[in-house]
Structures are given as C-alpha cells and as structure tokens.
Design a protein around this nucleic acid. Structure first.
Lengths: 273, 273
DNA sequence: CCCATGCAGGCTGTAAACAATAAACACCGC
DNA sequence: GCGGTGTTTATTGTTTACAGCCTGCATGGG
C-alpha cells in the first residue's frame, strides 16, 4: 500500500492538460510545477467535480482512505480538502464519523437565493453608479457582448451556451461592482447552489424569460440608474428562485432530503468508487 | 521532541474551565471528553486569541512547529487551523512559505463595512416584517432588554459593557431575521473586522451617538416598518465605518500596512512566542 | 421473539517521519 | 569591492504509522 501508482488508473487530479508521459518521475515533476499549488487544492477541485457529477450524491460519506487511494495521494490532502469543503458549506463533518455531502433543503436554498438577491442587487446598484457617464467604456462593452451572446444562444436554443454566459454575466456584474468581499460571498453561494442542486430546472421557456430580465437589468445599469438596477437584479434573482422552487415542486423531489447526516436513504454504500 | 508536556507550561488550549489536574493522563482525557471537538478547532480558537491579543500581529508568520510545540499538539491540527483561518480571511497562506496574519487595508475594511451595511439592513427589514403585530412578543422583549442595558452602560460610561451588548444587539437582529446564510456571512465579516482592527476607535462620544442610532433602528423594527428599518440599519453601519475611518485617519496609523505578505515591517522575527 | 451486551472491523484523529522548497549565507571569480 | 553561485539550514508539503472512536453483528438473557 505504498506510493505505487502515483498517477492511478483514473487520474482524477489531471486538471491541467498534461498528457500522461510514459515515465513516472519526470511527468509527475512537470505536473507539480505546472500545478503550482498544494495538493489539497487539487483534491478539493476533484471532490467538487465528484459532487457536481453526482458520483458523490448528497448524504454520501467521503471515505478518506478510499478517496486518497483513488486520487493517488495520501490522507492528509484529502482531509484538508474535506475541511475546505466544510467551510464552503458543501459537506458537514462529524467528529469521528467523517464528512458527508450536504443536501440543500428547499428552505435553505430559498434563503441562499434571498441572500444572493440582496447581494446581486447591491452589486448592480454599485455598478450603475460606477458606470455613470461611461456607457461606452470597456466594461460596458464586455457586458453588452455577454448579453449579445446570450441572445444568440436563445435564438438557437443552445442551453449549454446560455448557461455558461449566464453565469459569466452574473460574475461580471459582481466582479465589476468594485466590492471584493461582496463578490466572494456571492460567488461562494452561487457555487453552492450550483453544486448541490444538480441543475434541476432550465426549461427553454425559462431561458427566454431570464434573457429578457438580463436586458432590463443591463439597460438600467448602463443608464446609470442605481435603484432601478438594484430592483431588476433582485427581481431577476428572485425569479430564479421561483423557477427553482417550481421545478422541484413538480416531480423532481431529488433535493428534498434534509441535511441531517444520515448515511444514505437507500441501503447502498457510498457509490463514489 | 516526543509528546512530553502534552499540557505545556502555557496551556493556551485550556479553554473549557478544566482546572489543571495534578496527573497527566486522566485530566487530559477528561478535557478531551469535555471539549468534544477535533483538536484543530481548539487550535483555531487559540490562534484567533493570539491574533486578537496582538501576540500575532499583522504580517507575522504562523510557524507551524513553534505553534505546535507551544500548544502541545502536533503540526497536523495546526495546519488544519491555519487553513481554516485562511478560509475566514484572517491569514493568507503562500505555497512553501507559510501562513501570514493579514492586515486589513483601509480599502478592504471599507468594503467589508459596505457589505455589512447591506446585510444588516436587509436583516433589519426582514425582522421588521417578521415582527409585525408582535410588538410584545419574546423577541421584541429581548431586543428591548439589550437596548436598555446599553442605555445603562452609556449613563455610566461603561465602555466594555456597551461593547458587549452592542455586539449582542447586532447578533440578535441578524439571528432573529430568519435567514441563516445571511447571519453566517454577517458574523464572519464582523468577526474579521474585530480581530484585525484592534479596537481602534470607540470614544465615549461615539457610544452616545451609536446608542441613539440603536433606538431609532429598534423603533422602526418594532413598528413593523421594513424600509425605514433597513435605512436605519444601513446608516448605522455606515456611521460605524465613518467612525472607524476617522479614527485611523487621526494618529492611529496602525492598520495602514498593505496586506501583502511581507515578513514584517520591522526586522524582528515573529514575536509570537 | 425482542433487547442488551460483548466483540470485531473499519474509519477517523493525531502524531511523527520523510521529501522538497525557499530563504540565508559563505565562497569564488571578476 | 561586487555580483553571481553553490551550499546550508530552517520550514513547509506530504506520507506513513499508531491510537481511539463508532458502527454493525453475533450471542445470550429476558
């Protein structure tokens, strides 16, 4: 059980496009240099991918030894990653029991949406104020381009593309508003929603509606009208919450498990491996 | 260098009132049972105390082996605590260099105040809505009692007491507003401000002003007027920011180091031990 | 037939050892 | 004297090993 197969059969940690060299030592070294970050960080990213993909469903326990073996590292970095995920609210860790993937109750999801609405609204207001008299500056151009891409995606019904740019649009607004802590909090909670509710809704109709909301929001921002921008941003986020709640209300009862750390509703063990 | 002196000469980890038993094994066991939490958590609390007390000033490096020896634990829990502090924004960790106590630039402190203003304002609005028609419920009584204690403290010029209840008042409002993620974010950032700006301002005059603001805020909340409550809460937080900035502007240039991880402005090594 | 007790296994919490990096210092050529 | 270079040393990143806890199962008593 030593350090054989440092790059295991399924190299989950291969995030940078480093193709597997034939030899062990040199390629591993290059990978480390390219990564330029502690292993724990890479492990955290890997675990987040596992959670997002559903390989680690809500309620599953993060078995340290199994994950360490799977990722080709030792338990230390895995523990570190687990604690980081706990701080991010993705898992809950219980003394001597381990870390369990959280499941977002409808209640908490709604509260996070509410928080995000306030943050996003304030970001929009700040940005509107900031962009006064700069309707044609580079920031405005960036925002316009993103919305234009979304228009294109809506026309073609390209859901995946729309989603990418949708997330980007929100990130650009909070990123350009100038308040870094606000941005960090907003992104953290948006990420939490994204990872724990596995893309439940997203009908094509919603895409059209959301796009219209984007247009109204951007217009207010570019007009330099802070309070209307805030209102539109809050309304947009709350509309997203409504879409989410409506989606899980009809049929998709997946996200309805409480966040208590029960091992798993079905009798199966953790299906992560 | 083995595990001798598990409770070292300066037992920084003795947080629960467990008086030092004469023997080693039994008392240590009881302490662990009483604590009922991983060591890393205790170490984090100890480090926060060291930061708050100034034993670990901004810019200081957290030497893992030294701290581990001082606290009577091994490096693992110390590392864990350091990463947790990083997530909380109290330290920055650089690869292969270690963790450094952050120093809050005036810029970032102002942004945190801004964020807190929005969060606190929204909490006040939510609470006002929530307490409609319950002016005499237990929550209202709790808030009134806290404000009454602060009135008393103002009369007597009891700064310490005022501060305790001031923090409590803010916590009660965000705690009773019903949005748990919002509460968590607000408390986290308030804590960050408290630990990294070492109580710079707080003249007696400010105490009177702040207390008057509390009264106005509480009146709006108990009247069930959400928007006025929000405005008063935001104004109160922004006034706090103004008091802070004014205080560091005149004389107290302590918090003016940038948050770049320079070893220390003076040539001395980390004065933590 | 149901429930308490004892035992075994797996897993986490913690500690100590090993490897690798980066800063500090001395040395050398110029 | 001065800049560059090799070496040394302290410190972090990672791994491995050990101890304690929790869980699940089997067994025996009610």
């Amino acid at each position: 059980m030593s350090q054989r197969e440092a790059n295991g059969p399924d190299a989950v940690l291969a995030s940078t496009g480093e193709a597997q060299g034939q030899d062990s030592g040199v390629s591993a070294l290059r990978a480390r240099i390219a990564a330029r970050q502690p292993l724990g960080r890479s492990v955290q990213a890997a675990l987040e991918r596992l959670i997002e993909s559903g390989a680690l469903p809500p309620g599953a326990r993060l078995n340290e030894v199994a994950l360490a073996a799977q990722l080709g590292v030792s338990r230390g970095p895995v523990r570190e990653a687990a604690r980081a995920l706990e701080k991010d609210g993705l898992v809950t860790v219980i003394l001597n029991r381990g870390a369990f993937v959280r499941s977002l109750g409808m209640e908490e999801a709604a509260q996070i949406y509410e928080l995000n609405a306030v943050l996003f609204g304030h970001a929009a207001a700040l940005l509107a104020e900031r962009l006064k008299g700069r309707r044609d500056g580079p920031e405005a151009a960036t925002l316009r381009a993103t919305v234009a891409r979304m228009d294109h995606a809506v026309e073609q019904g390209a859901l995946e593309a729309f989603f990418t740019d949708n997330a980007l649009f929100h990130q650009q607004i909070v990123g350009l508003c100038g308040n870094q802590p606000l941005q960090a909090v907003y992104l953290e909670h948006t990420r939490k929603l994204l990872l724990l509710r596995r893309r439940s809704f997203d009908a094509a109709g919603n895409m059209r509606v959301a796009n219209a909301e984007h247009h109204r929001l951007l217009a207010s921002i570019l007009a330099g009208k802070a309070e209307p921008a805030r209102r539109h941003a809050e309304a947009h986020t709350r509309a997203g919450r409504a879409r989410y709640l409506a989606a899980i209300a009809q049929g998709n009862a997946a996200a309805e498990t409480t966040d208590t750390p029960h091992e798993q509703h079905n009798g199966k063990e953790t299906p992560c491996c």
